[in-house]
Design a protein around this nucleic acid. Structure first.
Lengths: 356, 356
DNA sequence: CTGAAAGCGCTTACAG
DNA sequence: CTGAAAGCGCTTACAG
């Protein structure tokens, strides 16, 4: 028995209808699972569909119903475990509710984010979850809302925009981490982020930190430092840890400067890993020579020597909440927009010691 | 100025045409970027589209053209860094070629994989890249091919199926790793995989390993061991390392058994991390008490003490190749199917020492 | 319970 | 260069 060349033309309801000797409408009813049909007709159609190998064209279906059963998710970087975990939370909820998920990557670039959103709206997703790469830019998002696409922001809020958002309690989390270090006698604490910036560039202005999650953390850090009588804390809030080489340079600059920090807080687990490597490379012993706390309870933080004290963000739960909220909106609730803040905890492991 | 409630009905070419006082066909020509129009008309239409906020309906577009400009990717677990890296490779090539990527997760379950493939075909993707969860099951894949959807297998091949595949050189890689251990005097070497299985269950039969990538590695391992005069090597090929608890049990069983292995090869970096944690928990020192090699050069392998010797699979490159091949097929090449095998290297770090 | 017709928003020939 | 008509594969009223 030979396989013939693939029959290019997909089989349609019309084909099934003809084969089952019923009208298109009737065939469509059983194939689409709506309306009422007699059992006899149902089995005829089902049988015909099976032998023909009918597969519904979801595109056509979406076009007539106006629903695609899909939600679009735009994240900063799917390779970052923070986002993969969030996506799982979103997907789990979506699947249960009968939605599929399309993921797009912005690479934390506004232009890519815009393109992704256009694409997803073009594909007529029923709703959107996005991690805005620049919380100061909201035009493309308000456009989306204007078009009628339900939107939930993830991890970051946009103050200028009336829209649902699910974020961590970033300010509190940073204060908690900072106080923890302070309780070990640390005064000169550095805060390192991956935001684009010159090596040595420190925080002076909100506009440097377009992601509100990072900004809130820095605010919390500064507040805690200020409360502890440290005034110039912002000088140790550093940008530019965009990759291992830059992080090495940032750390080198920090350790060669005055005051020399005795502890470092890493703004996310990717930066944390790079900072840890930098310290290792320089032959520094953690926590004897320097202490470190990283945001996000990533895999690697548990197998280092010592294991790393982390701010444990409930990212899976955050993903779930975002999806739940979005689906509620899709299903009609037009209530006022809300900002959900998810509490975080500190997991104390071995990377924090007494300030020397 | 007030914002009115979102205008639910999206604006269509017809709306733009009316506003620009041209025919639908003409408006569609400029909006769709095909055919020829006068500059005057073009600017009228463009202007009208802008004020109306026209967004093309990609669904409708796909339905008439028969192309969606999208490729579907089904991976085992997007949270696994191996797959995220592959997806980036795929996405980079796809984007450059003007395709978008839809990702679906199978969780390494055949039923979920089937559902995902049905979904993607229903959405009329132009092609499919899939990591088959069970290389013995090919019906759903040959169906896809039968429907005319170009398909490239990733990481694993299906011997029974004439179809393109991009895999690592798994047999060679495992032989390389095994020989490396042998050169340090190791004879009793364990090989641990995450495939479902009882604690203590060892490899006796191909059917236990439905992923050919794993099977080829085991074959390479056994061949190398056999060449070194170790006959019962398969008894140390263990299944069941599905999560930390099970891995703990598998490692405990291994270390309590006879012969007691002096080295462990982890079949992927997730298993590797769990095995490393197990060893740490048991207070074993690597490599003094036991040596370890993990597949995949994951983040965590560089920050442990000692850092881990790994089989470095060029996963990004594999992803790129898969996407390139798929796009070539989509663009018409009906050449014979091919199996691309990508060479791997061993990165020797500190986790392998002399056998005691 | 079943069928004929219209329509979703585009693109594709086919005329002018 | 521009327009009128048909069609992609479904679902949705509307009749019978």
């Amino acid at each position: 028995m030979k396989d013939f060349a693939p029959s290019k033309r997909p089989v349609t309801v019309a084909d099934v209808a003809k084969s089952a000797k019923v009208s298109k409408a009737t065939a469509a009813r059983v194939l689409g699972g709506y309306g009422t049909v007699s059992d006899k007709v149902r089995s005829q159609v089902t049988a015909a569909a099976a032998v023909l190998g009918y597969r519904p064209n979801e595109l056509a279906r979406s076009m007539t119903t106006g629903r695609s059963g899909t939600i679009g998710v735009v994240v900063g970087d799917i390779e970052n475990a923070f986002f993969s975990l969030a996506v799982r939370g979103i997907s789990d909820v979506a699947r249960t509710a009968g939605f599929n998920v399309i993921i797009a990557n912005s690479g934390e670039e506004l232009s890519a984010e815009k393109a992704a959103i256009d694409l997803l709206i073009g594909r007529r997703v029923d709703g959107l979850i996005v991690t805005p790469s620049d919380c100061g830019a909201s035009d493309h998002l308000s456009d989306a809302i204007g078009v009628g696409v339900p939107l939930v922001l993830f991890d970051r809020a946009i103050p200028a925009l009336q829209v649902d958002a699910v974020t961590g309690a970033d300010r509190d989390a940073a204060m908690m981490a900072t106080r923890h270090l302070q309780s070990f006698g640390h005064r000169h604490i550095a805060y390192v982020t991956a935001r684009e910036g010159e090596v040595g560039e420190y925080f002076t202005d909100e506009s440097q930190l377009p992601a509100t999650s990072v900004l809130r953390r820095v605010e919390g850090f500064l507040a805690a430092q200020s409360a502890n009588g440290v005034q110039d804390a912002h000088r140790l809030v550093r940008l530019g840890a965009v990759d291992q080489d830059h992080t090495d340079a940032v750390v080198a600059h920090l350790l060669g400067g005055t005051p020399r920090p005795s502890a470092i807080i890493a703004s996310d687990s990717v930066v944390g890993l790079e900072v840890f490597r930098s310290l290792q490379t320089r032959g520094l012993s953690v926590p004897r020579d320097i202490s470190i706390i990283s945001f996000f309870n990533a895999d690697w933080t548990t197998v280092t020597t010592p294991p790393i004290t982390v701010v444990d963000q409930p990212v899976y739960e955050m993903g779930r909440r975002a999806a739940e909220r979005l689906i509620a909106r899709i299903d009609g609730g037009a209530e006022a927009s809300q900002h959900f803040t998810i509490q975080t905890t500190l997991i104390s492991r071995g990377s924090v010691g007494q300030a020397s």
